[in-house]
């Protein structure tokens, strides 16, 4: 088990190095001078030169790369131009908001999708199942960005029920009011993100449940005389959830990507808006830092899923 885990981690190293290298090259080779974006429209050439020197932008590309890898290994992602703070400080200040959104969105999306999928498999052939299928397929086809804008337009701008964006109101409420205020701000982005993951789990669980419920051990369980509820949940759903588990690991990574878009729509102060701002400012260390943190998170989530799957299904370790 340990050996398997170590091998999986080892396999991830080249992936990560490649990702870092790609990020570095793509960003550096793009046209445009970051010193200009930093110094501003009215700055004198001397001031721009000073900035360029300060951030080592004058060094040759290879020198910049070597220095970058050295610092990366010591956990230093460099200084953010636009925040004038270490990239790690900037990211750690924002990652919480992103994780909160991803956690809530995934919980609602995966939980809702799985349960409704299971429900649909029970209701096979009924109008209810047909309705759920149409809803699922429609949501599956809608871009998350557009869906978010629709939610904002109807629920925030027209109805004034929920805030259109942000993580809290200003001036900041305190005490119990702050909790309610935070929850209200969380609703729309969570729903948008959940609607993005929901159809995948709905379809997966429905298909798996339909297959599992025809297995022989289900028939056996029924023959023994277990109640229908126990057969459905303990014998049926539990087995159907294996592929859902695999999928969840992958979705965690994808959701971070989805959350970046969701954050942009809802002005959610997480890594997504951070990334958007960093791109606008050509804040190279920050762009690379966010990208690398997200990449590492995706790779780690994939490894965790593999390992978890091996725990659940011993056959995996043997291959």
């Amino acid at each position: 088990m340990l050996r398997y885990s170590l091998i999986r981690v080892g396999q991830a190293v080249p992936t990560l190095v490649f990702l870092v290298l790609m990020t570095f090259l793509v960003v550096r080779l793009a046209p445009g001078d970051p010193a200009y974006a930093l110094a501003g429209d009215n700055a004198s050439p001397q001031y721009i030169e000073q900035i360029r020197h300060q951030y080592g932008l004058g060094q040759p590309l290879l020198g910049q790369l070597g220095a970058y890898f050295r610092r990366l290994f010591s956990g230093d992602l460099g200084m953010s131009y636009s925040f004038q703070e270490p990239v790690t400080t900037v990211i750690s200040g924002r990652i919480g908001a992103s994780l909160q959104l991803v956690a809530c969105g995934l919980l609602l999306g995966i939980g809702g999708g799985t349960l409704l999928g299971a429900y649909a498999s029970r209701a096979a052939g009924t109008v209810r199942e047909a309705v759920l299928n149409v809803v699922g397929l429609t949501l599956y086809s809608i871009p998350i960005f557009w869906l978010g804008l629709l939610l904002v337009y109807f629920l925030a701008i027209q109805a004034h029920w929920l805030p259109a964006g942000g993580q809290y109101s200003f001036p900041r409420p305190t005490g119990a009011a702050a909790v309610g205020d935070g929850l209200r701000h969380l609703v729309l982005p969570t729903v948008a993100l959940a609607l993005y993951t929901f159809p995948v789990y709905y379809r997966l669980t429905r298909a798996r449940m339909s297959a599992v419920m025809t297995e022989e051990y289900i028939r056996t369980a029924r023959a023994i005389g277990f109640g229908e509820r126990r057969v459905f949940f303990r014998h049926g759903l539990r087995n159907a959830l294996l592929p859902v588990l695999t999928m969840a690991g992958l979705t965690l990574g994808q959701s971070l990507g989805g959350a970046l878009l969701t954050e942009a729509v809802f002005s959610w102060p997480g890594l997504g808006t951070l990334m958007a701002g960093a791109i606008g400012q050509r804040d190279l260390p920050l762009i690379m830092g966010v990208f690398e943190v997200v990449a590492v998170a995706v790779v780690l989530a994939t490894i965790a899923t593999d390992v978890l799957y091996a725990v659940v299904d011993p056959r995996v370790r043997l291959t």
Binding site: L108, L115, L155, A156, W161, P163, D181, V187
Partner: peptide, 29 residues
Amino acid sequence: FKAFVVAASAIVLTACSTSGSTNAGGSDS
């Protein structure tokens, strides 16, 4: 399931409906 689905939708709907109108800033903010 039905009970769960109803409960889950209720949570989302309550969160929406209890919110009232969004904060419009106080008169001195």
